[in-house]
Design a protein around this nucleic acid. Sequence first.
DNA 1: TACGCTCTCAAACGGTCGTTTGAAACGGAC
DNA 2: GTCCGTTTCAAACGACCGTTTGAGAGCGTA
Lengths: 223, 223
Amino acid sequence: MAAETETQTEHVAGTRESLLDAAESLFSEHGIQASSLRMITQRAGANLAAVHYHFGSKEGLVRAVFSRRLKPLNEERLRLLDACDLDAEDGVEQVLRAFLEPLLRMSRERARDFGRLMGRAFTEPSEELRTMLMEEFSETVRRFMAAFARLLPHLGERELMWRYHFVAGAMAHTVGCSYLLEKYSGGACGGASNPDEALGHLVTFLAAGMRAPARTGPVSPGE
Amino acid sequence: MAAETETQTEHVAGTRESLLDAAESLFSEHGIQASSLRMITQRAGANLAAVHYHFGSKEGLVRAVFSRRLKPLNEERLRLLDACDLDAEDGVEQVLRAFLEPLLRMSRERARDFGRLMGRAFTEPSEELRTMLMEEFSETVRRFMAAFARLLPHLGERELMWRYHFVAGAMAHTVGCSYLLEKYSGGACGGASNPDEALGHLVTFLAAGMRAPARTGPVSPGE
DNA sequence: TACGCTCTCAAACGGTCGTTTGAAACGGAC
DNA sequence: GTCCGTTTCAAACGACCGTTTGAGAGCGTA
């Protein structure tokens, strides 16, 4: 049984995985720049030089922290998208749920810290990180944009792009700045700590926004 | 005429204001942590020690950078809110515009860099900065929440809080991560560089979201 | 036992950080 | 001119940063 549970990672507590876990939690707590390799290796119970042995540099560690979670995350998104019925009446809600749920669930389950980290990732000023993130998300964006385009034929491509951007913004703000909601609501709204409630509110709000009448006609290239 | 144009600030180029300007642009470009005092003072044409003379510490400079813009920004928001007709058919749109326009305009006019900086400010991990920002915004949140509560009596307080949070998230993402929109749209969407287009799309999308049917009844305290 | 490979370790490297200091320059009041 | 409060300046402080080094532990294989 012990051999069964250690499915892929964590042979015992592998230095490499410990470093990724420690970096993930510290990045989400203090930011990337403010998390020194000495803090990370100390929390991981590893030697300072271990980072450069396993990842080459701090930059390499940052990339590894993100790509470890991002690949499964976007794969699940696309899997859920494939399972959507685009001809159903609630097609928009289904697609939104497929986009939102994996990240929101991640905030609760095994990768608690990664949700917060991901919510702030796109605001990181590092050019290298941005480039990596945009490549990692490019197919997800393409596929979801195509689904929305079929569901909302009254929208031109540009208008669709704007609305998709707002969807991503509301999601990022929800998982990245949940402390705001908690403070301003006096603790009444759970924030990202209750992903089911967050998901429900997000889908209701964003589906209405996506379905709003077009500002411009469905043919966009003109102006 | 020369004496007329230097209305309030910038007697000539005052060291203090130069430092604020340099810090603002560098913070928005590289983030707060990554902007060293040596970079800031060099861009401002000032001596390294000038920061501590005028602001006491880097933390003091950060506070000053934000409060210089935030007070006028939120005052304008409340002024525009007071001018809204809450009984009009487009009351929701009016209130949204009052909330969104000042920051979006700021991204274009005199404080070009501050928009981007503000869009990322709430994701900053510094506890002191967060506390300062939340205090600076507390009245704005209270007043706009009250306006939305009158406009949308079908929503309970908690549901209203969630939706307000999504509004803030879409706005923050728009001004803070406009590079995403520009890249993914292949340059077709101007991002925050065209505040009028951004404002129009935001208002259309968010108004529809705010007006969406309630998930729970208007009486919230029950569950 | 000896080898080769993977991994860990303590120690140090040069560099940059925020901050402090004490003296020099400025500019209006007398 | 002399004084005094305000502001600027070059230089240095100790601390911490990411990175590198070279030695050595652990271990399966021959």
